[in-house]
Amino acid sequence: MTCLPKEPSGKKLGLVIDLDICVGCQACTVNCKEWNAGGHSNPLHDKDPYGGEPDGVWFNRVHGYEVTSEETGNSQTVYFPKSCLHCDDAPCVTVCPTGASYKRSEDGIVLVNAETCIGCKLCSWACPYGAREYDDTQGVMKKCTMCVDRIYNENLSEDARVPACVSSCPAGARHFGDLGDPNSGVSQLVEARGGYDLMPEQETKPVNKYLPPRAKQHMKEETGKQLKKQQDGPKGLMKLLDQALSW
Protein backbone atom coordinates (compact mmCIF):
# COMPACT_ATOMS: atom_id res chain seq x y z
CA MET A 1 0.00 0.00 0.00
CA THR A 2 1.34 3.40 -0.87
CA CYS A 3 -0.62 5.16 1.82
CA LEU A 4 1.68 6.14 4.66
CA PRO A 5 1.46 3.83 7.69
CA LYS A 6 -1.69 4.66 9.67
CA GLU A 7 -0.23 3.42 12.91
CA PRO A 8 3.51 4.05 12.83
CA SER A 9 5.42 2.34 15.63
CA GLY A 10 7.09 5.58 16.62
CA LYS A 11 10.47 4.15 15.73
CA LYS A 12 12.25 6.30 13.15
CA LEU A 13 15.57 4.91 12.08
CA GLY A 14 17.68 7.59 10.47
CA LEU A 15 21.01 9.29 10.06
CA VAL A 16 22.46 12.37 11.67
CA ILE A 17 25.13 13.97 9.51
CA ASP A 18 27.63 16.33 11.06
CA LEU A 19 28.59 18.99 8.52
CA ASP A 20 31.18 20.33 10.93
CA ILE A 21 33.19 17.15 10.62
CA CYS A 22 32.67 15.89 7.07
CA VAL A 23 35.67 16.56 4.83
CA GLY A 24 34.20 15.05 1.67
CA CYS A 25 36.51 12.03 1.51
CA GLN A 26 33.81 9.99 -0.31
CA ALA A 27 34.43 6.88 1.82
CA CYS A 28 30.70 6.71 2.66
CA THR A 29 29.60 6.91 -0.97
CA VAL A 30 32.04 4.22 -2.07
CA ASN A 31 31.19 1.84 0.77
CA CYS A 32 27.47 2.47 0.13
CA LYS A 33 27.88 1.51 -3.52
CA GLU A 34 30.03 -1.48 -2.61
CA TRP A 35 27.57 -2.89 -0.07
CA ASN A 36 24.40 -2.18 -2.02
CA ALA A 37 25.73 -3.49 -5.32
CA GLY A 38 25.41 -6.88 -3.65
CA GLY A 39 22.66 -6.19 -1.13
CA HIS A 40 18.89 -5.68 -1.01
CA SER A 41 18.72 -3.57 -4.19
CA ASN A 42 21.35 -5.37 -6.20
CA PRO A 43 22.57 -4.91 -8.82
CA LEU A 44 23.29 -1.19 -8.90
CA HIS A 45 24.05 -0.45 -12.50
CA ASP A 46 27.37 0.99 -13.57
CA LYS A 47 27.52 1.85 -17.22
CA ASP A 48 30.84 2.67 -18.84
CA PRO A 49 32.55 2.92 -15.42
CA TYR A 50 36.04 3.50 -16.82
CA GLY A 51 35.00 5.23 -20.04
CA GLY A 52 34.28 8.81 -20.97
CA GLU A 53 30.70 8.96 -19.75
CA PRO A 54 30.27 6.84 -16.65
CA ASP A 55 26.68 6.55 -15.44
CA GLY A 56 25.06 4.62 -12.65
CA VAL A 57 22.98 4.58 -9.50
CA TRP A 58 24.46 5.80 -6.24
CA PHE A 59 22.39 6.12 -3.07
CA ASN A 60 24.68 8.61 -1.45
CA ARG A 61 26.47 11.55 -3.01
CA VAL A 62 28.70 14.17 -1.41
CA HIS A 63 28.35 17.73 -2.68
CA GLY A 64 30.90 20.44 -2.02
CA TYR A 65 29.66 23.95 -1.29
CA GLU A 66 31.22 27.28 -0.58
CA VAL A 67 29.31 29.49 1.83
CA THR A 68 30.16 33.17 1.70
CA SER A 69 29.14 35.45 4.53
CA GLU A 70 27.47 38.59 3.26
CA GLU A 71 28.70 40.61 6.26
CA THR A 72 32.37 39.76 6.39
CA GLY A 73 32.92 38.37 2.90
CA ASN A 74 34.67 35.39 4.47
CA SER A 75 33.88 32.05 2.95
CA GLN A 76 34.02 28.49 4.17
CA THR A 77 33.85 25.12 2.52
CA VAL A 78 31.13 22.69 3.56
CA TYR A 79 31.01 19.09 2.39
CA PHE A 80 27.47 17.89 2.22
CA PRO A 81 26.57 14.19 1.96
CA LYS A 82 23.03 13.57 0.74
CA SER A 83 21.01 10.38 0.66
CA CYS A 84 17.35 9.45 1.27
CA LEU A 85 15.99 11.25 4.34
CA HIS A 86 13.28 8.61 4.97
CA CYS A 87 10.67 11.36 5.41
CA ASP A 88 7.68 10.99 7.73
CA ASP A 89 5.45 12.48 5.02
CA ALA A 90 7.22 10.84 2.13
CA PRO A 91 5.68 12.18 -1.12
CA CYS A 92 7.56 9.52 -3.10
CA VAL A 93 5.46 6.88 -1.34
CA THR A 94 2.00 8.37 -1.80
CA VAL A 95 2.44 9.15 -5.53
CA CYS A 96 3.39 5.55 -6.36
CA PRO A 97 0.57 4.06 -8.48
CA THR A 98 1.47 0.42 -7.90
CA GLY A 99 2.22 0.07 -4.21
CA ALA A 100 5.87 -0.71 -4.94
CA SER A 101 7.03 2.25 -2.89
CA TYR A 102 6.29 1.93 0.81
CA LYS A 103 7.20 3.19 4.25
CA ARG A 104 7.60 0.54 6.90
CA SER A 105 5.46 1.07 9.98
CA GLU A 106 7.92 -0.80 12.24
CA ASP A 107 10.94 1.48 11.71
CA GLY A 108 9.97 4.18 9.18
CA ILE A 109 12.36 3.00 6.47
CA VAL A 110 11.22 3.86 2.92
CA LEU A 111 11.78 1.04 0.44
CA VAL A 112 10.96 0.05 -3.15
CA ASN A 113 9.70 -3.38 -4.08
CA ALA A 114 11.61 -4.12 -7.28
CA GLU A 115 9.13 -6.91 -8.12
CA THR A 116 6.17 -4.54 -8.52
CA CYS A 117 7.84 -1.23 -9.55
CA ILE A 118 6.80 -0.29 -13.09
CA GLY A 119 9.54 2.30 -13.53
CA CYS A 120 7.24 5.29 -14.12
CA LYS A 121 9.73 7.61 -12.32
CA LEU A 122 6.96 9.66 -10.71
CA CYS A 123 8.48 9.07 -7.24
CA SER A 124 11.70 10.71 -8.38
CA TRP A 125 9.67 13.74 -9.51
CA ALA A 126 7.90 13.88 -6.15
CA CYS A 127 11.10 13.84 -4.08
CA PRO A 128 12.65 17.30 -3.64
CA TYR A 129 15.98 15.83 -2.49
CA GLY A 130 16.86 13.61 -5.44
CA ALA A 131 16.96 10.53 -3.25
CA ARG A 132 15.69 8.20 -5.95
CA GLU A 133 17.54 7.21 -9.07
CA TYR A 134 16.27 5.19 -11.99
CA ASP A 135 18.13 2.03 -12.94
CA ASP A 136 17.62 1.77 -16.68
CA THR A 137 19.19 -1.68 -16.87
CA GLN A 138 16.56 -3.07 -14.48
CA GLY A 139 13.73 -0.67 -15.37
CA VAL A 140 13.00 0.06 -11.73
CA MET A 141 13.65 2.77 -9.16
CA LYS A 142 16.48 2.43 -6.68
CA LYS A 143 17.05 4.20 -3.39
CA CYS A 144 18.83 4.11 -0.04
CA THR A 145 17.56 1.21 2.06
CA MET A 146 19.12 2.43 5.32
CA CYS A 147 21.06 -0.81 4.81
CA VAL A 148 18.05 -2.78 5.97
CA ASP A 149 20.07 -5.91 5.12
CA ARG A 150 22.86 -4.88 7.54
CA ILE A 151 21.15 -3.29 10.50
CA TYR A 152 19.08 -6.40 11.33
CA ASN A 153 21.65 -8.88 10.03
CA GLU A 154 22.47 -11.37 12.77
CA ASN A 155 25.32 -12.78 10.70
CA LEU A 156 27.20 -9.58 11.36
CA SER A 157 28.79 -8.69 14.66
CA GLU A 158 26.64 -6.33 16.68
CA ASP A 159 28.84 -3.28 16.15
CA ALA A 160 28.72 -3.80 12.38
CA ARG A 161 24.89 -3.58 12.31
CA VAL A 162 24.86 0.01 11.11
CA PRO A 163 24.46 1.37 7.59
CA ALA A 164 27.55 0.95 5.41
CA CYS A 165 28.07 4.72 5.14
CA VAL A 166 28.14 5.07 8.93
CA SER A 167 30.55 2.17 9.40
CA SER A 168 33.01 3.57 6.89
CA CYS A 169 33.12 7.23 7.92
CA PRO A 170 36.69 7.72 9.16
CA ALA A 171 35.87 11.01 10.85
CA GLY A 172 32.71 10.05 12.72
CA ALA A 173 30.56 12.51 10.81
CA ARG A 174 27.68 10.07 10.40
CA HIS A 175 25.50 8.74 13.20
CA PHE A 176 22.74 6.16 13.05
CA GLY A 177 19.90 5.57 15.48
CA ASP A 178 16.26 5.95 16.39
CA LEU A 179 15.22 9.57 15.91
CA GLY A 180 11.73 8.74 17.18
CA ASP A 181 13.13 8.13 20.66
CA PRO A 182 13.98 11.45 22.36
CA ASN A 183 16.45 9.71 24.65
CA SER A 184 18.49 8.03 21.94
CA GLY A 185 22.05 9.18 21.29
CA VAL A 186 21.17 10.62 17.89
CA SER A 187 18.18 12.55 19.23
CA GLN A 188 20.30 14.05 21.98
CA LEU A 189 22.98 14.97 19.47
CA VAL A 190 20.35 16.74 17.37
CA GLU A 191 19.08 18.51 20.48
CA ALA A 192 22.55 19.61 21.60
CA ARG A 193 23.83 20.77 18.25
CA GLY A 194 20.67 22.28 16.74
CA GLY A 195 20.16 19.60 14.12
CA TYR A 196 17.88 20.69 11.30
CA ASP A 197 15.74 19.48 8.36
CA LEU A 198 16.58 20.08 4.69
CA MET A 199 13.96 22.16 2.85
CA PRO A 200 11.37 22.20 5.67
CA GLU A 201 9.14 24.28 3.34
CA GLN A 202 8.59 21.19 1.20
CA GLU A 203 6.71 19.72 4.19
CA THR A 204 8.13 16.22 3.86
CA LYS A 205 9.18 15.99 7.53
CA PRO A 206 12.57 14.32 6.95
CA VAL A 207 13.79 11.87 9.59
CA ASN A 208 17.49 12.38 8.81
CA LYS A 209 18.94 15.47 10.42
CA TYR A 210 21.94 17.65 9.65
CA LEU A 211 24.20 19.24 12.25
CA PRO A 212 25.36 22.72 11.20
CA PRO A 213 29.05 23.56 10.84
CA ARG A 214 30.26 25.38 13.94
CA ALA A 215 30.85 29.11 13.49
CA LYS A 216 34.27 29.72 12.04
CA GLN A 217 36.72 31.32 14.42
CA HIS A 218 37.42 34.67 12.86
CA MET A 219 40.47 36.63 13.83
CA LYS A 220 39.92 39.17 16.60
CA GLU A 221 40.77 42.75 15.71
CA GLU A 222 43.54 42.90 18.38
CA THR A 223 45.21 39.77 17.08
CA GLY A 224 45.10 41.16 13.56
CA LYS A 225 46.92 44.34 14.58
CA GLN A 226 49.53 42.34 16.45
CA LEU A 227 50.15 40.14 13.43
CA LYS A 228 50.41 43.10 11.06
CA LYS A 229 52.92 44.76 13.39
CA GLN A 230 55.07 41.64 13.31
CA GLN A 231 54.88 41.44 9.53
CA ASP A 232 55.71 45.13 8.99
CA GLY A 233 58.58 45.07 11.42
CA PRO A 234 59.91 48.12 13.31
CA LYS A 235 59.33 51.70 12.21
CA GLY A 236 61.33 54.96 12.14
CA LEU A 237 64.72 54.98 13.84
CA MET A 238 64.36 51.36 14.88
CA LYS A 239 63.70 50.46 11.22
CA LEU A 240 66.96 52.15 10.14
CA LEU A 241 68.79 50.36 12.89
CA ASP A 242 67.14 47.09 11.95
CA GLN A 243 68.12 47.51 8.30
CA ALA A 244 71.65 48.56 9.24
CA LEU A 245 72.14 45.52 11.39
CA SER A 246 70.45 42.91 9.19
CA TRP A 247 72.70 42.94 6.13
Binding site: E66, F80, L198, P212, P213
Partner: peptide
Protein backbone atom coordinates in the same frame (compact mmCIF):
# COMPACT_ATOMS: atom_id res chain seq x y z
CA UNK B 1 17.07 26.17 2.39
CA UNK B 2 18.16 23.06 0.46
CA UNK B 3 21.44 22.90 2.36
CA UNK B 4 20.26 24.59 5.54
CA UNK B 5 23.42 26.75 5.42
CA UNK B 6 21.67 30.07 4.80
CA UNK B 7 22.53 31.37 8.30
CA UNK B 8 26.21 31.29 7.33
CA UNK B 9 25.82 33.16 4.05
CA UNK B 10 25.20 32.65 0.35
CA UNK B 11 25.70 29.10 -0.87
CA UNK B 12 27.42 28.26 -4.15
CA UNK B 13 28.78 25.07 -5.64
CA UNK B 14 32.47 24.51 -5.03
CA UNK B 15 32.71 20.95 -6.24
Amino acid sequence: SATGLGHLGKVSVLE
